[in-house]
């Protein structure tokens, strides 16, 4: 970017150009190491980079461009497609399915995000100096995150069963008549979100735990000497100094929640009649693209998902200034 201000004719020799090119990559490393001898590596770098880059270009870069194009086409029933400009998008904007699935995705994201404060608390407990079994607890909390979503969904599906599920039995003990969680369109997404919260909690705990390790213990010792209560220490030291990690966890949680598919598909089941009311954005994408086989429309859904995630992430970065401390 900065090089565009230079007149290209001023570049006298290839060495200068190479140095300038090198500067942009090396400037990221603090400490300014000894400058390596200026030389090019001939054909070697290409031998190293091309296997990966060819794959990435064919299976990732070209598909991104192609999907953007596809989103402006209508696919015929026997393959072939016609260019229709923004037709899919105008249709999508008027499609109630988009708002249903967007709403469900937001509800899911909201419930899963409730796990973040829980994770802050759990991580701070795990970080107590000299706590025994801390690693054992860490493993327990992390277990759901590494479990195959479709496999663990099986047990949750049974636990949420309206007749013999443990969730309703537990609710029955406290006098609540539980709903038919996964076959009721008003509760299905809540059930999925509870599992989402359960399965992502461990990841947040671990990332926040790494953040906690960077807080100097002297701060707590000083606070202890000043007679600050545990709660006060948590509120005035832990949380403010942890805000960068909390921000990072929030971004990751929101982005991955917006991509909800596996748990929804596996817990509700692909034949569930509540799916049209309980689906997520990515499920809508899957249904249009691979069940209804409308590739153009599905491509438009994919572009909308891209846009929504981009906007939400940008908003979070904007709001970051209000609550994330500079450390």
């Amino acid at each position: 970017m900065t090089t565009s201000t230079h007149d290209p004719r001023v570049v006298a020799s290839p060495e200068v150009a190479a140095a300038r090119q090198g500067r942009s990559t090396r400037s990221r490393r603090p400490g300014g190491q000894r400058r390596p001898p200026l030389r090019r590596d001939g054909v070697w770098p290409w031998l190293f980079v091309l296997p990966l880059f060819t794959g990435v270009a064919v299976f990732y870069l070209w598909p991104i461009v192609n999907t953007a194009y596809l989103s402006m086409t209508r696919s015929g029933p026997f393959g072939g497609s016609t260019f229709i400009g923004f037709g899919n998008f105008t249709e999508l904007v008027a499609d109630p399915q988009l708002y249903t699935s967007l709403g469900n995705t937001l509800v899911y994201t909201g419930i899963v995000a409730l796990g973040i404060p829980i994770a802050v608390y759990v991580a701070s407990l795990l970080n107590l100096p000299g706590l025994r079994f801390a690693q054992f607890y860490r493993v327990l909390f992390f277990l759901p995150y590494v479990a195959m979503p479709t496999a663990i969904a099986m047990v949750w599906r049974v636990m949420f069963n309206g007749d013999f599920g443990l969730v309703n039995r537990a609710l029955g003990v406290v006098g609540v008549d539980g709903p038919y969680w996964v076959s009721d369109s008003s509760t299905a997404i809540v059930a999925v979100a509870i599992v989402g919260l359960w399965s992502s909690l461990g990841f947040s705990v671990i990332v926040l735990g790494a953040g906690l390790k960077t807080i100097p213990p002297e701060l707590y010792e000083a606070a202890e000497l000043d007679g600050a209560s545990t709660w006060r220490q948590f509120r005035s030291i832990t949380v403010p100094l942890l805000t960068p990690s909390i921000f990072f966890v929030t971004i990751i949680t929101v982005i991955s929640s917006f991509q909800l598919f596996d748990l929804l598909y596996a817990i509700l089941g692909s034949a569930n009649p509540v799916l049209p009311q309980s689906m997520s954005l990515v499920y809508l994408f899957y249904r249009e693209g691979f069940v209804n086989n409308d590739k153009g429309y599905a491509a438009a859904v994919a572009m909308v998902i891209f846009l929504v995630i981009g906007v939400v992430t940008a908003l979070q970065f904007r709001m970051q200034r209000r609550w994330v401390q500079d450390v």
């Binding site: 190479a18 090119q21 090198g22 942009s24 990559t25 200026l38 030389r39 090019r40 590596d41 770098p45 290409w46 980079v49 990966l52 880059f53 990435v56 270009a57 299976f59 990732y60 870069l61 070209w62 598909p63 991104i64 192609n66 999907t67 596809l70 982005i255 917006f258 991509q259 990515v282 994408f285 693209g289 590739k295 599905a298 491509a299 859904v301 994919a302 572009m303 998902i305 891209f306 995630i309 981009g310």
Partner: peptide, 26 residues
């Protein structure tokens, strides 16, 4: 060091910002 390394790297890393649905169809 090779010509275009910055551009190639930026292209590869740009994929990280794109949700997988966008390339899945193609």
């Amino acid at each position: 060091r090779f010509r275009g390394s910055g551009v190639l790297l930026a292209l590869v890393l740009s994929i990280l910002m794109v949700p997988s649905q966008v390339y899945l169809l193609s």
